[in-house]
Simulated assay, not measured.
Amino acid sequence: MGPQAEVRKTGMILPANLPERSWEQIGTNLRELGNSSAWWLADWLRFGEAAYGWRRYKEAIERTGLDYQTLRNYAWVARRFDHHRRRDGLSFAHHAEVARLAPAEQDYWLRRAEQQKWSRNELRRTVRAGLAVQNGTAGLPAGGGDERPGAARPAGPGAAGQRCPQVTKLTIELSADQLEHLTEAAAAHGLPVDKWVTRLLETADRATADRKTADLTSA
């Protein structure tokens, strides 16, 4: 047995005569461990929430000493991918990049990333380019010629010359408990909180307009 690295809680001691191949293998193992630990934490969090309830779940997060929102994001990504849909050849971060898309779109982009050996950043750039395609009328992103799945593509920016709607930034103050409940509700719809709240506001606006129309009709 050749020289071995010594692993401690506070670091790693590598022997001076460690072969280069062994050093490379250690790096590979560390990468896989880091990627797996994100999935492990995510599934652990999901189990705690389901088995012990929200209050015990929050306590468990606090006891890990890890960032609350980061762990919540881990759990959200894990909910978006059942175990059989997770790809061993890609990192947790790859899956997080496409987590908000529909399942068919997720599978498409992850398959492309695995085939093309994209890094997380390459996947992010290509997905963003694909989402910017206006109503699916332009060609596929560079890097392959296979067909997209049948799922509808998100609409891109408006046509050239079309006036963009004015955007107003709205700030809402929420308690910690309110934010937690909203995060859970948004995650159930596969959306981040801001997108989900925007959808609620749009639904409420349409309902108000419908009521006004009905009032005018009945007057």
Rank of each mutant, 00 (worst) to 15 (best):
L200D: 02
Q134W: 09
G53K: 06
G190L: 08
G89S: 14
S175F: 05
P149A: 10
W196D: 05
I61V: 15
Q69W: 11
G11W: 08
E20R: 12
Q116S: 11
A60H: 12
A176H: 09
Q106F: 06
R163V: 08
Q4V: 08
G27T: 04
K117S: 11
W196N: 02
G89T: 13
T168P: 00
A142H: 05
L33I: 11
W44R: 15
A187E: 10
H83E: 03
A151N: 13
K169M: 06
N17P: 03
S175N: 06
L33R: 07
I61T: 10
D43V: 01
E6P: 03
A142W: 05
G27W: 02
G144Q: 07
W118F: 02
L123W: 07
G11R: 14
T168H: 03
D215G: 04
N121C: 04
G2C: 03
R56A: 15
R153S: 07
A209K: 03
Y68T: 12
A102W: 04
E24Y: 04
E49I: 05
S119N: 13
L110I: 02
Q178P: 00
Y74K: 02
V7W: 11
A75W: 01
L179Y: 14
A159T: 00
F81P: 03
R100Q: 13
V7M: 14
R199A: 10
Y57V: 09
A104E: 11
A204E: 10
G136C: 05
A214C: 01
H94T: 09
